[in-house]
Amino acid sequence: MLELRNLQVLYDRAIEAVRDVSLSVPDGAMVALLGSNGAGKSTILKAISGVLSQEDGEIVAGSVQFEGESLAGASASDIVRRGIIQVPEGRALFAPLTVEENLLMGGFTRTRAQTRDGIERIYSLFSRVKERRHQIAGYLSGGEQQMVAIGRALMSDPKVLMLDEPSLGLAPQIIDDIFTAVVELNRSSGVTVLLVEQNAQLALEITSQGFIIENGRIVLDGPSDKLRANADVQEFYLGISKGERKSMRDVKHYKRRKRWLS
């Protein structure tokens, strides 16, 4: 189990990005972390991955625990070896390298045999990646790059896969293909998934539990089906009010009336 306990994160020793966040991700589960831009979602993933220092961020209180052990002081590479992998927002591929070279970079902790098996696994999961394995990654479409980024993460055979805005900027059909593959991966291999996503409808459809974060704090959590049925979630995240979809202009005023923050 991946667990955060009363986590507090500061940037530049002054800007509080995450405050007193506690959440748990059970083994084999798919869990959604939802919230608006700047709410603290990506910061939480970076805290788990051990990469906060790259942006002058640090955990100043609380803890991140995995399989009963604290990750305090662990390097990013050590966290990868323990089985936690993040696919960052924007994909961050090695653009000048080929698709297959990018995949090989993801398997740096594995043996040659494990790397070979991992590549075949990715190719069976994403046929488009196999078709473009010799192409330069920087020339791929956004959706293809996202598939390669997920594939690169899977090369290390993770126990926990953290996805940061995987649907951002992608066409609906590509989004469906990617999320279908992630769900199949979870069901067939038991990979735990922590999904950060602004498409709340999609995220709550494929996960079993969700957490909603605002201004660095968890403000609501529960089973995904109950969150979808929650009137506030429908209005403020799904754009639905009394069965009718509201305009974006109306939805943007939700901060004035959030009942769960009162």
Results as ranks from 00 to 15, higher is better:
Leu154Met: 13
Pro172Lys: 10
Ala137Arg: 07
Thr180Phe: 11
His134Tyr: 09
Val182Pro: 08
Ile174Glu: 04
Ser188Leu: 13
Asp176Met: 12
Ser189Trp: 12
Ser141Ile: 12
Ala149Trp: 01
Gln145Glu: 03
Val193Thr: 11
Ser188Ile: 04
Pro158Glu: 07
Ser208Phe: 00
Ile150Thr: 02
Glu131Ile: 09
Val160Gly: 00
Val160Glu: 00
Arg133Asn: 09
Val196Pro: 00
Ala149Leu: 02
Pro172Glu: 10
Thr207Pro: 08
Ile178Pro: 02
Gly143Asp: 06
Pro158Met: 04
Leu140Arg: 03
Arg132Tyr: 07
Glu144Gln: 14
Glu144His: 07
Gln198Gly: 06
Arg133Cys: 06
Gln201Ala: 15
Leu202Pro: 10
Met155Ser: 03
Val183Ile: 13
Val148Glu: 03
Ser188Asp: 15
Leu170Tyr: 04
His134Leu: 14
Ala203Lys: 07
Arg152Glu: 09
Glu184Gln: 15
Thr207Gln: 10
Phe179Lys: 07
Gln198Asn: 10
Gly151Ala: 10
Ile175Gly: 08
Lys130Arg: 15
Met155Trp: 05
Leu195Trp: 12
Ser141Gln: 10
Gly210Glu: 10
Phe179Gly: 02
Ser156Lys: 02
Glu197Lys: 10
Leu195His: 10
Leu140Lys: 04
Asn186Gln: 13
His134Ala: 14
Ser167Met: 07
Tyr139Trp: 07
Leu202Cys: 05
Val129Arg: 02
Thr180His: 14
Arg187Lys: 15
Val182Met: 09
Ala153Gly: 14
Val182Arg: 01
Ile178Phe: 03
Pro166Ile: 09
Val193Asn: 02
Thr180Asn: 15
Gln201Asp: 15
Thr207Phe: 08
Gly190Asn: 11
Asn186Trp: 08
Leu168Met: 15
His134Arg: 15
His134Asp: 14
Gln209Cys: 07
Met147Glu: 01
Gly169Phe: 10
Ile206Arg: 11
Ser188Met: 11
Ser141Leu: 08
Ala203Tyr: 08
Gly142Lys: 06
Gln146Ile: 07
Gly210Ile: 11
Gln135Phe: 08
Gly138Pro: 03
Arg133His: 12
Ala137Lys: 06
Ile150Cys: 03
Ala181Arg: 13
Arg187Cys: 00
Val160Leu: 13
Gly138Lys: 11
Val196Ser: 05
Gln198Lys: 10
Asp177Gly: 01
Ser188Arg: 15
Asp157Ile: 04
Leu140Met: 13
Leu140Glu: 05
Ile206Phe: 09
Gln146Trp: 00
Gly138Glu: 11
Ala200Arg: 05
Val148Arg: 00
Arg187Met: 06
Leu154His: 00
Asp176Gly: 05
Val193His: 02
Leu185Gly: 00
Leu140Cys: 06
Ile174His: 07
Arg133Ala: 13
Ser156Pro: 03
Ile206Val: 15
Ala200Thr: 14
His134Cys: 02
Met162Gln: 09
Val160Met: 02
Ser189Lys: 13
Ser141Asp: 12
Ala203Gln: 10
Leu168Trp: 02
Gln135Ala: 14
Ala149Ser: 12
Val183Asn: 05
Ala181Glu: 11
Lys130Gln: 14
Ile174Cys: 04
Glu131Gly: 03
Ser189Tyr: 12
Arg132Leu: 13
Gly142Tyr: 02
Gly169Cys: 08
Leu204Arg: 11
Ala149Arg: 00
Leu140Ile: 11
Leu185Val: 06
Asp177Ile: 04
Gly169Glu: 08
Asn199Ser: 09
Ile178Gln: 05
Gly210Cys: 12
Gln173Cys: 01
Leu168Cys: 04
Ser167Asn: 04
